[in-house]
């Protein structure tokens, strides 16, 4: 369980987060949605500790992450995995080395056990064995995302964070990535937080959806709820799209 309490963040004179409270449950895909500039990236980075909030707390299973010393944070970070928008795979390493990287640093496994774990994770995200020795740049965008997911789960984390995992992917590959995130979340019982503006993801995997606007949380519910909502913020965000207008009118018929 991740609990966010009264998070505020200001850059210069621009308040980006104006007091966000939310609870993100384990075993669920928790989606943070909102238009560009709504504060969702700053919120996600505040939760993972890449940005220090000005006020508020982030509790990871009751542990006050925001008040922790760097050394304690380091230990807790091994319970976290993150998939970045641009995958952030290390270009100087092969696919296999990228996935093994966290194990090399933080596990006491033997070389054979590491190899087995890496093979398991890559197989879980359906990366063929032929890609193991390749450089990440030689892979397609979708495969890079899958390798990034494999690297994120290799230490068996309790929390998985995904920053716009479908960014730059075609609709078909986006669905594959969404489904993979959902499967892994259920399978390993992780608390997954996905930052997205992809409405298809909301409907596909949105167990819990939080809508941000101008630094405030303006709505929360489930993916299916969003199509039925009459909340003006939801209407403004979702139903500007012609496609979703049609979906909504079809549902109302």
């Amino acid at each position: 369980m991740i609990e966010v309490r009264g998070i505020k963040k200001t850059f210069g004179d621009q308040a980006v987060l104006k007091g966000i409270d939310m609870q993100l449950a384990p075993g669920q895909c928790n989606l943070i949605i909102g238009s560009s500039g709504s504060g969702k990236t700053v919120l996600l980075k505040s939760i993972v500790g890449l940005i220090t909030p000005d006020e508020g707390q982030v509790l990871l299973d009751g542990r006050d992450w925001t008040a922790m010393k760097e050394q304690d944070r380091k230990e807790l970070r091994q319970e976290m995995g993150m998939v970045f928008q641009a995958s952030a795979l290390f270009t100087s390493l092969s696919v296999e080395e990228n996935v093994r990287f966290p194990l090399d640093f933080f596990s006491q496994l033997s070389a054979a056990e590491k190899k087995e774990r890496v093979a398991f994770c890559l197989d879980r995200v359906r990366i063929p064995e032929s890609a193991l020795k390749k450089n990440p740049a030689e892979l397609s965008g979708g495969m890079q995302k899958r390798v990034a997911i494999a690297r994120a789960i290799v230490l068996n984390p309790k929390y998985l964070f995904c920053d716009e995992p479908n960014s730059g992917l075609d609709p078909e590959t986006s669905i594959v990535i969404d489904q993979l995130i959902q499967e892994i979340t259920r399978e390993f019982g992780m608390t997954t937080v996905v930052n997205t503006h992809d409405m298809n993801s909301v409907l596909e995997i949105g167990d819990h959806v939080v809508l941000l606007r101008h630094g405030y949380k303006v709505w929360e519910g489930t993916g299916p709820d969003i199509l039925k909502s009459d909340d003006q913020e939801v209407v403004d965000y979702v139903f500007r799209s012609a496609l979703f207008k049609r979906v909504r009118s079809a549902m109302n018929k």
Partner: peptide, 16 residues
């Protein structure tokens, strides 16, 4: 390049 492609953030998230 590592900074702008978030590879440094990836290291930090791992606790490195």
């Amino acid at each position: 390049t590592m900074r702008v492609t978030e590879q440094m953030d990836a290291l930090q998230i791992m606790g490195i």
